[in-house]
Design a protein around this nucleic acid. Structure first.
Lengths: 162, 162
DNA sequence: GTAATCCTTCCAATAGTGGGAAGGTCAAGC
DNA sequence: GCTTGACCTTCCCACTATTGGAAGGATTAC
């Protein structure tokens, strides 16, 4: 099948299939004489695998390891477990950070009158650096401090879940 | 003071100060005859404000609103509260998504022997799409479905490609 | 035989940040 | 006054993952 059909069958866009191929995440396919990429059912399985791993928030680099493991069934499942558990840690740490941020902000918002008066602890908390979770001049933990690669931001192409 | 000192005092790198200026997040500064940017203590306050907002996960666009609000104290705190609360929602939704991912993965990992045997429910869950939270072929919720912009990852790069 | 659709590759943009080159400036030391 | 070194300037590139589009070739439908 062509790339378009493989895209539909796997849920990975044609654009992304080409991208994944270009970065070596998936192997190069056979081509027709005209240069069209040709995909087998097995290729579609790999693509679906990749898509689901992305859905779980794995980075392309991690998926790369996972795909190699998946394609080589002789490898010990220890490796897979390690990667998964590492990822669980990152995910949970990230979730905690996000919750702390939310709590800080919610605390600030709670004390903001929200009427016409300009007094607002959110603004003051931000300006005075006493916002709640004790940040001083550490150079920003933020995202990525944990090593999580958060994939994408824009525009779910066909329909995100709400 | 120069950009380096402002960077040190605010915790925002000189690179980022220039970037924030270029995108209009902070106003253009006065320059010396030689073209050096000059910063006042007040400018450093603005920069610190921006840094803390980034720490809390605000996107540059949101910070832009916040900075405008902050600099114009006549504006009603309603706006600030609204922005903050919107952000709290996003943060909490994101945290929940992350926790779901972690739970799915942890569930899979729990049933993985992790020894030499190649049977591994993680791999099988990924390949067979029965991983636990009932995903079918929806085209990836992932990050960004919520509108959160996850800032950075900190990939230190040295090797050129090409 | 042409139009519509699909495919190809290449380029740009997104958001936010770091790295570095090429060159100008400033302050200190001799 | 000259060198040294630290600092500044602008500009370009890298990275992540993904989308969009342009220009042109291939296939398919009518």
């Amino acid at each position: 099948m062509n790339i378009g059909q493989a895209a539909e069958a796997s849920g990975v866009s044609a654009k992304m299939i080409r991208y994944y191929e270009s970065i070596g995440l998936i192997p190069k396919t056979v081509r027709t004489e005209a240069g069209y990429r040709v995909y087998s059912d097995n290729d579609v399985n790999t693509l679906s695998f990749v898509r689901r791993a992305r859905d779980l928030g794995f980075s392309v680099e991690q998926i790369s390891e996972l795909v190699a493991l998946w394609r080589d069934r002789d490898r010990a499942s220890t490796d897979v477990k390690r990667i998964a558990l590492e990822h669980v840690d990152i995910l949970e740490r990230k979730a905690r950070e996000l919750q702390e941020m939310a709590a800080t902000l919610r605390h600030l918002a709670k004390h903001c009158h929200g009427d016409e008066r300009p007094e607002c602890p959110i603004i003051e908390g931000l300006a005075n650096d006493d916002g709640g979770h004790g940040s001083d001049h550490r150079p920003a933990p933020r995202f990525g401090a944990s090593g999580l690669q958060p994939a994408r931001r824009g525009a779910a192409s066909k329909g995100a879940r709400g």
